[in-house]
């Protein structure tokens, strides 16, 4: 087994463990390369099926290609696709693009708050109807108690402190200093009522591994990751007002792999194109409060 085989086997094991142990499980799909690899790994784990609902938080400021791609894949792969949003903040224009909040607060409203209330079932969810080929209000209101998230330990400082199975209390609070031990391949899968857990099958993957795996498996990803002739491409995807492309000529997956191996991007953080990270407190503050 090579390194990618081992990473794949471990992630598949974790996904199956999650599916076995949690009655109310969902997977967050940000449409980005990492969670798309995770979705592919779910198809590996469940032999072509995805028996877990996929949840996307739509800020309605996502780059349009992302949404087109999401819905095309949802239909092709027969996914139980769900999205949620912060309708109130959007209606009252409490956003950064509207000039009414700073970036961090905008993230908090459109992502953290929307996520929290979508997971708990308090806010409306919309489900892809495969007959009608469009979204309809979802009848399901039950809270998701197990949430599968595609974070990687190498991405950013706070994410390296995660466990594969990481508990959150009922207010979503993450106690970084007091986490359960993980012995061998036995994880914390028992939870007191009222708590829930984040599951991280991609924790050991690096950005390079992700691209190598996309190449090996020929996984379709959004075209925004590739240079379309302007000499720039997105390295990390988010909302268009706060996400900038990086300078890069890579037009294909092998070119991205070469670029990463060459070290040309080694001094530039992967999320450097994400403006909210550089504001006060940045990602750790957002994450303690429920951001992924």
């Amino acid at each position: 087994m090579d390194h990618l085989d081992k990473l794949e086997a471990q992630s598949v094991y974790i996904l199956r463990e999650a599916y076995r142990e949690f009655k109310s499980l969902c997977m967050l799909w940000s449409i980005g390369k990492d969670s798309t690899v995770m979705l592919w790994l779910a198809r590996k784990a469940f032999f072509g099926h995805v028996p877990i609902p996929l949840v996307h938080i739509d800020t309605h400021y996502k780059i349009p290609e992302m949404i087109t791609y999401r819905d095309r894949i949802a239909l092709e792969w027969n996914l139980n696709m769900i999205y949620g949003e912060n309708r109130e903040a959007l209606q009252s224009k409490l956003t950064f693009p509207d000039g009414n909040t700073d970036r961090i607060t905008c993230c908090k409203y459109l992502k953290s708050e929307a996520l929290k209330h979508t997971l708990s079932g308090q806010w409306p969810r919309y489900r892809m109807d495969h007959e009608l080929k469009r979204y309809v209000p979802d009848e399901g209101k039950e809270p998701y108690t197990g949430v599968i998230v595609g974070v990687r330990a190498d991405e950013e400082g706070s994410r390296s402190k995660e466990r594969y199975f990481s508990p959150r209390d009922k207010d979503n609070v993450w106690d970084v200093g007091d986490q359960p031990p993980e012995f061998w391949n036995q994880f914390k899968t028992d939870f007191a009522p009222g708590t829930h857990v984040r599951i991280h099958p991609l924790l050991d993957w690096t950005e390079l591994n992700i691209w190598e795996y996309i190449e090996r498996e020929k996984i379709p990803v959004v075209s925004l990751y590739f240079n379309q002739g302007k000499g720039t491409r997105y390295r990390s995807l988010g909302c268009y007002p706060c996400t900038n492309p990086v300078d890069s000529v890579s037009q294909t997956v092998p070119e991205i792999i070469d670029e990463l191996k060459s070290g040309r991007l080694s001094n530039i953080a992967e999320r450097s194109g994400r403006a909210q990270d550089s504001e006060d407190g940045g990602l750790e503050t957002l994450r303690r409060d429920g951001y992924m």
Partner: peptide, 16 residues
């Protein structure tokens, strides 16, 4: 690999 175990006490892994 098939001789290792963990023990769960009150929802937490408390021993291996």
């Amino acid at each position: 690999t098939t001789g290792r175990f963990v023990i769960v006490d009150n929802y937490e892994i408390a021993g291996g």
